[in-house]
């Protein structure tokens, strides 16, 4: 037993020595950690990938590198061999995709299959779409002092601070590629002169296909239905400005004769910040209720035409529609869906 242990020890040490000097070892300062990845596809049918790398030698400085290739994975490989440091994609926080590429349904699917299955790129990286030239946008961003937290914070302000900004991660997009009953909104951003990014609303995706663009205020409603986030924001009604203190949503789904129906009640508590002389409480409440209901109904009609279930009503019907029929939710049931959306506002 004693001899055996000793021989094993030697064996272990030998194998360790053998293993030394190997594969994953690379000091952290010899790695480049890209923060943002931009993917675009110009008319020349080649992918163009742009990365921003923080330069650790000089504090706060970033640099931008670009490469073209046949596929995203190929470009990432090329970049890896071209840059002097080893590029470690594991810290990518944001993936910016230009609008023409995002509109291409097949490319989008292919790309997210790759992004999800890639071992390097974290599936919690945020996804955003932009209309601008990505390279120019990147140089503007780096001028504003780009850092990891700045991006993260931009998209994660919290519902209490900026209710209209939403975030979408790779895994959520990936999930949407397959989901029968749920669609998502991917934020659309622009560059700006004095802030890192500017939020421009969202693109609505149906199984990886962009079907519509919605404005930030519409985005709020989406967030409300998808995540049941409280809306805490100010709303200007022209003759009065109110502040929504608290909100709370109730959905009651039912299905009769293959026609799905949802009774949706939104309860909000408001306080009036300022108002014109002689405006009564009930007027403000009526106006607000009408306004939100109209906003929702307009939007809902549009999504029904697009057959995109952005509000996630399908989730409510997962038990009510036989599973084998669920995949036809968007085409068969959703256009027939009747939503009775009522807003009940009360004063605080």
């Amino acid at each position: 037993m004693e001899r055996l242990n000793l021989s094993k020890l030697i064996f272990a040490l030998l194998s360790l020595i053998l293993l030394c000097g190997c594969w994953d070892i690379k000091a952290i300062n010899e790695r480049s950690l890209p923060l943002v990845m931009g993917i675009s596809k110009k008319n020349d049918e080649k992918y163009q990938v742009t990365l921003t790398l923080p330069v650790t030698r000089v504090k706060g400085k970033t640099r931008i590198i670009t490469e073209k290739g046949e596929s995203v994975s190929e470009v990432l490989g090329q970049l890896r061999s071209n840059v002097e440091d080893a590029i470690d994609y594991s810290q990518i926080r944001l993936i910016l995709i230009d609008a023409p590429l995002a509109a291409n349904h097949l490319e989008w699917r292919k790309m997210f299959h790759y992004l999800m299955s890639s071992k390097d790129i974290p599936s919690i990286a945020l996804v955003a779409i932009t209309d601008e030239n990505i390279e120019q946008m990147f140089s503007k961003m780096s001028k504003q002092g780009l850092s990891g937290t700045a991006l993260y914070d931009f998209f994660n302000k919290g519902a209490g601070w900026a209710p209209d900004v939403s975030n979408t991660r790779i895994w959520e997009v990936y999930q949407n590629l397959f989901s029968y009953t749920n669609d998502i909104a991917v934020p659309v951003v622009h560059s700006s002169e004095d802030t890192i990014l500017k939020f421009k609303g969202s693109a609505v995706l149906k199984n990886g296909k962009v079907t519509a663009n919605i404005s930030p205020s519409e985005n709020q409603l989406v967030r409300l239905f998808q995540h049941h986030h409280f809306i805490r924001n100010t709303e200007n009604l022209g003759f009065a400005t109110i502040f929504v203190v608290n909100s709370h949503l109730k959905n009651k789904p039912s299905i009769t004769n293959h026609i799905p129906q949802v009774a949706s009640d939104l309860f909000i508590k408001i306080s009036i910040l300022e108002r014109d002389e002689g405006v009564s409480n009930s007027l403000v409440i009526d106006e607000l209720e009408k306004r939100i209901e109209k906003r929702f109904n307009d939007m809902f009609k549009q999504t029904q035409i697009n057959k995109t279930d952005i509000f996630g009503f399908g989730q409510l019907f997962r038990t009510r529609i036989p599973y084998d029929d669920l995949h036809s939710w968007r085409d068969k049931y959703y256009p027939k869906l009747i939503v009775n959306f009522r807003v009940h506002a009360t004063m605080e």
């Binding site: 974290p122 599936s123 919690i124 895994w171 999930q175 397959f178 989901s179 749920n182």
Partner: peptide, 24 residues
Amino acid sequence: IFGQETVTTFVFPMKEAADSVDLS
């Protein structure tokens, strides 16, 4: 987290599930 439709595409679903979490 993912739903039946998506989860069948993974080799290690639990790993992907843990990977989807971002605690600030």
